[in-house]
Each structure stands twice: as structure tokens, then as C-alpha cells.
Nucleic acid binder design. Sequence first.
DNA 1: CCAAACAATGCACTTCCATTGCAGGTTTAT
DNA 2: ATAAACCTGCAATGGAAGTGCATTGTTTGG
Lengths: 142, 142
Amino acid sequence: MRINYESNRKILEEKQVRPTAMRMLIFKFLAQKQMAVTLADIETAFEKSERTTIYRTIKTFEESGIVHLIEDGSGVAKYALCEAGCNCELDSDLHLHFHCETCKETQCLTETKIPHINLPPGFTATDASLVVKGTCDKCNKK
Amino acid sequence: MRINYESNRKILEEKQVRPTAMRMLIFKFLAQKQMAVTLADIETAFEKSERTTIYRTIKTFEESGIVHLIEDGSGVAKYALCEAGCNCELDSDLHLHFHCETCKETQCLTETKIPHINLPPGFTATDASLVVKGTCDKCNKK
DNA sequence: CCAAACAATGCACTTCCATTGCAGGTTTAT
DNA sequence: ATAAACCTGCAATGGAAGTGCATTGTTTGG
């Protein structure tokens, strides 16, 4: 729908990313997915387009703070859209990621923040990543 | 020293891993290192031996609970010895890992356990991994 | 003690994912 | 309109993980 298209475009522009056709498509794809996706997932969804372009698009998104990288232990990098107003780089917005061992999907649990950690003396933290593994709500219902 | 050799051997045997020469060497290497190491690190330390052997040795160690895998976000798998009596698989022994962005080393902070996390309704956890990034005590002193 | 059975090792090869170089094509600013 | 900056597509590279198979080493049962 038109509205959505316009708002997506606005998000890209706000982050200083030119809203090319490819980027808009990939952004839309990410927005529709509830889960974190791999580069291969995007490739599969857009068979017509080039791996490299997708790769670089995601890199651009990552550097611009449009998506954030998630390493969930599956060995491949996954990406998910940052929430509106999210500053993933900052300590303040460290949410946790949940990897379901049944459906193999990874999602952001944006409501659940990483609790404050007391580090041993001498250590200073700039970033943290918490991945919880188990069974997600959907799979627990089955 | 002899004592150490014997005690290392005992550890392997307790975990049902045959103490071959190669395995003893790799175990010793891990025990001396304070940090988590990559397969490449071990390769470099033992140039004479085969990548595959090292790879499979570490796999064996991992499956037997002698080492645990750490994914610190550097993209490559790292391994560290489990503490005596550690049961890395169990919730009870989830310590945190610290990745120093200055020296690029990763270490276990075994004293610091992962705090209890309240998951949203429907989610059940079996495992968790917390990696904190920043500057370690040594690099902060420089 | 010897042979059969099993486990560990070495070598070659494959696969998967990430990344880069370069040559067009497109957009933007002057 | 034109140059500069940026984006895209294609080809190729690199690094790490993993597999198959033949060989060697180790254990165990007779």
C-alpha cells in the first residue's frame, strides 16, 4: 500500500540511505518478516537479484542503523530491522534475542532488556549480546 | 611436570576420551592459555599436525564436555576449557564471556553468572549465552 | 601373543558463507 | 550538460567448516 511505501522510504532517507528499488524491496521484506533473516533467506526471496547487491544492501543498512546483526549461534549472520528510534549501538537499547531450537527461527524480544551486569574490576563494557535458546511460544503450543 | 601430565590424562579419561598424544598436547595448550582459542590458533601452535585432527579433537572435547564453544561475534568459533566440575550444558553454570575490542581476546568470566531472565509468556529456555564487549582489565591499564 | 575390531590420524576434496575488484549504469549536484 | 558520487551486476577470491577414505595405532578377546 502506498502509505507503507512512503513511510518506508522516509525511514531510509532519514538514515541517509538512498531509497533505490532494490533497497526498498529488501526493506519491505524485512519489515514483513517477524524473524531475523539470513542473507540466504533474502536471496531466496529475490531470486532475480544478485547476491552481492543483497550483501551490500544489508551492509549499508547495518552501517546506517537500519538493521542490526544477530549472531544466534547457528553460525550464519542474521539481521533484523531496528525498531523505530532504536539505537542498537547504545547500551540503553540492548534487547535479547531468542533462538527457537524447534523452528530454528530467531527473533528479537524487544521488550526484554539485558539486565545490568557487574563486571570484575578493570573491565569496561561498551556492548553486550544475549541469546537465549529454547522453545518459542508458537512451538510450545503445538 | 609429571604431576600435571598425569592429572590432565585423568581428566580426559574421566570424560571417556582416550588420552592420545595429540589430545594431550591440545589439552595442555588449552590449559596454559587463559583465553578462548580458535581452531586456527591451535593450528598455528602445532604446525606439524593436521587441521582435521585438531578439528576432530576439539569436536571430541566439545562433545565430551571438556571444552565449551564460545561465539563472541568475531565470526569464528572459539573454545575454552570447562572448569573442573563445570556442566556447561546446564543452566546452572552459565557464565559470561568477555570479548576485548582492544586485544581481540575472549575469556571466560567464570565468576560472573548470567542473571535470571524473565521471558515473555510461552517461551521456555534451555540455554543462554551472554557476550559482553569492551576493554579488558589488562588493556585498561595500558 | 596374535589377530580381529575399533579408534584415531592424515590427506584430499567439497561446501558454504563472506568479501572484494572492476566494469557498467544511474543518480545527484553544479 | 557534465562530472562526481553512488549503486548494481558479474566474476573471482578467501577463509573456515565439514566429509570420505585409506592408513596407522590401540585395545581386546581368544
